[in-house]
Amino acid sequence: MEKNKVVRSRRKNLAQYAYKEIRNRIYFNQIKPGELIKENNLAEELGISRTPVREAIKMLASEDLIEVREGVGTFVKILSFKDIRDIFEVRKALEAIAVKSAINRITESDLKGLEDDFNRISMELEKGKLTREEFTDVDMKVHELIFNRCENSFARGIFEDIKLKIKQYQFLSYESLNNSNESILQHLEIINLLRKKDLNSLITTLNNHIDWSLKCFLMYD
């Protein structure tokens, strides 16, 4: 009995490991939208059997990140124009809800850390040393902070569900659109308004930023 429990625990851990690795590869576009997911290759690269890879794929399918086409294979899901617009429409409404309670729970220490991050990547951008991974990681931090500090757990949950899809297309658009400097400036303005606790201006600025981000993604597509 104890041996069976250990086996189940190890299998679960391997599935979680495979899930995180495949999820990261989707996020960083090492496996691109529309690309076939090759179970054998992934299992070999991760040094595990196909069973935990299959379990990981089921988890990713439940998150609507991949799709299984019967008799064809498993693919990273491609978002349509409508999907992207719908996601950003929901994101806009959620962020307006979240910031209302988050604004008084975000500390000066939080804001100083974000400001330092954006100033650092701004300098790296000027030197031509900013990587896509670093940019997309910092770019989402302001929005993650707003949701982490908000009191609405449903808003937090929905944001977590759509966050990877947003990051995935953000990562794709980074090099092709060359919009990093504008994004940094917009985020620094959001940080400034959070510091002033100017809720009305903040919601307007967030809405404009999200609309601008959507246009960038649609231009990439």
Rank of each mutant, 00 (worst) to 15 (best):
residue 81 F to K: 11
residue 40 N to Y: 11
residue 43 A to N: 03
residue 70 E to D: 13
residue 102 A to W: 00
residue 52 P to H: 03
residue 93 A to I: 06
residue 94 L to I: 08
residue 91 R to P: 03
residue 42 L to M: 09
residue 79 L to M: 15
residue 113 G to R: 13
residue 99 V to S: 00
residue 106 I to K: 05
residue 128 G to P: 00
residue 82 K to V: 10
residue 89 E to L: 13
residue 144 E to N: 15
residue 75 F to V: 02
residue 88 F to I: 06
residue 40 N to V: 11
residue 96 A to S: 10
residue 38 K to Q: 08
residue 72 V to G: 02
residue 137 D to A: 11
residue 83 D to K: 14
residue 73 G to A: 09
residue 112 K to C: 08
residue 32 K to N: 13
residue 64 D to P: 03
residue 46 L to W: 02
residue 44 E to R: 15
residue 115 E to G: 07
residue 48 I to L: 01
residue 37 I to K: 00
residue 99 V to I: 15
residue 39 E to S: 15
residue 35 E to Q: 13
residue 34 G to D: 14
residue 38 K to C: 05
residue 110 D to H: 08
residue 142 V to F: 07
residue 32 K to H: 09
residue 90 V to H: 04
residue 66 I to Y: 14
residue 38 K to W: 07
residue 102 A to E: 01
residue 84 I to K: 09
residue 91 R to K: 13
residue 68 V to N: 11
residue 116 D to R: 15
residue 67 E to Q: 10
residue 97 I to K: 07
residue 110 D to T: 04
residue 108 E to Q: 09
residue 44 E to G: 05
residue 36 L to I: 15
residue 52 P to G: 03
residue 71 G to T: 09
residue 66 I to S: 10
residue 112 K to Y: 14
residue 144 E to R: 15
residue 103 I to F: 01
residue 126 E to F: 10
residue 147 F to Q: 00
residue 136 T to E: 11
residue 128 G to M: 00
residue 103 I to W: 00
residue 113 G to A: 11
residue 106 I to P: 03
residue 102 A to K: 00
residue 49 S to D: 14
residue 134 E to Y: 03
residue 93 A to L: 10
residue 91 R to D: 08
residue 98 A to H: 06
residue 109 S to R: 12
residue 79 L to Y: 13
residue 89 E to V: 06
residue 146 I to G: 01
